[in-house]
Design a protein around this nucleic acid. Structure first.
Lengths: 116, 116
DNA sequence: CAGCTATATCGACAATTGTCAATCTATGGG
DNA sequence: CCCATAGATTGACAATTGTCGATATAGCTG
């Protein structure tokens, strides 16, 4: 809050330009943050890594629970967050649910960062 | 937890491979999550965006407070998180503090995602 | 249908986080 | 030396989040 309310304004050197650039608006920032928030947890990063390393057929939850040392409900919860963020896709075959990377999702997330 | 402890194991169709891939270990995941967590807040994304849009001389805090409609302590807090994450650099000139993008930081963060 | 198994959902709880008001620190000017 | 200003730090508080145990749902098998 520069140059305001004071009786007399010295204003010899206004620290810098008001930066009239539009930058990122609040709505876009919130949407981007929603995606990045899904990526900001170590357990979810490991889940993505395991799914990505798996073959194209998808990875089932039973093989995701053990390497993370997390309970099944917790893994299911993380997977839901990743699906809601558009990073993973879920396909149910019989009793099992298979997760696979949403095509281009990681690249889009990365572009959100470099394109700030 | 497949094929364990049950008296007799049907195991007709073991949902999928145990996925022997190393994937991301816990330590690396935590370090990556630390960086991405700094990027997972809309206010911080906007701060980065404004700083990036500014000229090379750096942007001072007074010009970051107003466009975000946030108090000065809050902006200072966010800036500290971004500096601690290695995304911003702080330089104090006289009374003012100028922030600028750490070179290559955004690209490194983006590579962390695509290189999962 | 009854029982089993894989996964999802719910409820709770501790830990973390974003924000603000108040205060502290440091720099510059009279 | 005293005051004004820019910015950082502290303390508090509500909101969100990660995790778990318990329970619900859906598909397979006998």
């Amino acid at each position: 809050m520069n140059t305001a309310l004071t009786v007399e304004t010295p204003a010899e050197e206004p620290c810098c330009e008001p930066s009239t650039a539009p930058a990122l608006n609040a709505a876009d920032a919130q949407e981007s943050a929603r995606i990045l928030k899904a990526l900001s947890d170590p357990s979810r990063l490991r889940l993505l890594s395991i799914v990505k390393a798996g073959d194209g057929g998808g990875t089932c939850v039973c093989d995701l629970t053990e390497p993370l040392h997390l309970g099944q409900p917790t893994v299911s919860h993380h997977l839901k967050i990743l699906v809601d963020a558009g990073l993973l896709e879920r396909e149910k075959r019989g009793t099992w649910a298979y997760y696979s990377l949403a095509t281009g999702a990681l690249e889009r997330a990365a572009a959100m960062i470099t394109g700030l």
